[in-house]
């Protein structure tokens, strides 16, 4: 998943693909939307192409299947539609290059992944696309690699801060077993659990509206927000005394739309935000160059970021 276009997702994708033990694992790849173009559709900068080794299963649109630069066995034409034709499933017979254009929605991608089960795939790698953060949701993927870089912000400090905040959100603590059990199948509304463990529907249509009905609640212990968590809602909750010691639970980090300031003001020793599902962040990659010509100091960037997020940070081009 990339935080911005041109943060080096494809480069990272190829890097991982190149090193997978294909003899032992069956690997399937796809992307959300179009990926692997030779030049960027928006900024016209050179882009790496997706390179597949022999024996990789892949999903791409009919159009891109026909322009592939490798020999492949066509296994199936699925019913999943995209603007470039149905998604087809193939298996590479020789190494070569291909454009990947997978299902264009999270649900479509999930269906595709379910469909791939019949080929006994051990590992599926999805090339995420711009602003398709929801795809990284644990509902779809088990773990993720985050790509960030100069295209996201040209100032090292800002870039580190912004990236670190995203990492902080991805690493939010999992809520208690009990809460997970309670809220897992709840997909609508905002719910509160008070001191006596009784459940209240706050009758909030979405967290964009701040009219919450707190009748009968003296002190709220847990607040479950099924949809998006926004600044307005969190600030409103913060100002209401009954939420002084509340844990806000959201489905996963992709539902959080908070600025660092709101988050930091809300979370103190007594209040916290937790998630029902958590994805595992494996690594962070950086691309110090941006399409408008800015080149950041790669070593400094890696070190500062690594220090801030306590995770390994790689600049794949440099290493």
């Amino acid at each position: 998943m990339g935080l911005e276009k041109n943060t080096g997702k494809t480069e990272c994708f190829n890097y991982v693909m190149q090193r997978l033990p294909l003899a032992e694992k069956r690997v399937a790849v796809s992307s959300i939307g179009i990926d692997g173009e030779t030049t960027d559709q928006v900024t016209r900068t050179a882009k790496p192409e997706i390179f597949l080794r022999e024996g990789v299963y892949f999903g791409t649109s009919e159009k891109h299947y026909l322009t592939k630069r490798l020999s492949a066995e066509l296994l199936e034409i699925t019913n999943e539609n995209t603007s470039l034709g149905n998604i087809v499933i193939g298996k590479s017979l020789t190494p070569g290059k291909i454009l990947l254009s997978g299902p264009s929605s999270t649900n479509g991608l999930r269906r595709w992944m379910d469909d791939m089960k019949k080929y006994n795939i051990d590992l599926t790698i999805i090339d995420g696309a711009l602003s398709r953060m929801s795809l990284a949701s644990p509902a779809v993927s088990e773990s993720m690699i985050l790509a960030t870089g100069a295209a996201y912000s040209a100032n090292i400090n800002t870039l580190v801060q912004k990236t670190a905040f995203v990492v902080q959100m991805i690493n939010l603590e999992l809520t208690s077993q009990e809460n997970r059990h309670l809220f897992n199948d709840v997909t609508i509304g905002v719910w509160a659990v008070d001191e006596d463990d009784s459940l209240h529907d706050l009758k909030v249509a979405s967290s964009l509206s701040v009219n919450i009905n707190t009748d009968g609640i003296k002190k709220c212990r847990t607040l479950y927000v099924s949809g998006a968590l926004t600044d307005g809602f969190v600030n409103h909750v913060r100002q209401n005394k009954i939420f002084n010691e509340t844990e806000i639970v959201v489905r996963d980090f992709t539902k959080i739309f908070l600025t660092p300031m709101t988050y930091n003001t809300f979370v103190n020793g007594r209040r916290k935000i937790t998630v029902l599902q958590k994805s595992k962040l494996i690594a962070v990659c950086v691309n110090p160059t941006s399409p408008n010509g800015i080149v950041l100091d790669s070593e400094k960037l890696c070190n500062t970021l690594s220090e801030a997020i306590k995770l390994p940070v790689y600049d794949l081009k440099r290493n």
């Binding site: 190149q18 390179f51 080794r53 022999e54 630069r69 490798l70 020999s71 017979l93 020789t94 190494p95 070569g96 290059k97």
Partner: peptide, 16 residues
């Protein structure tokens, strides 16, 4: 030709 392609782990333009 395919055998040749498979022998290397990178993209061989002319052969392809």
């Amino acid at each position: 030709l395919r055998k040749k392609l498979k022998s290397k782990d990178f993209y061989q333009e002319t052969i392809y």
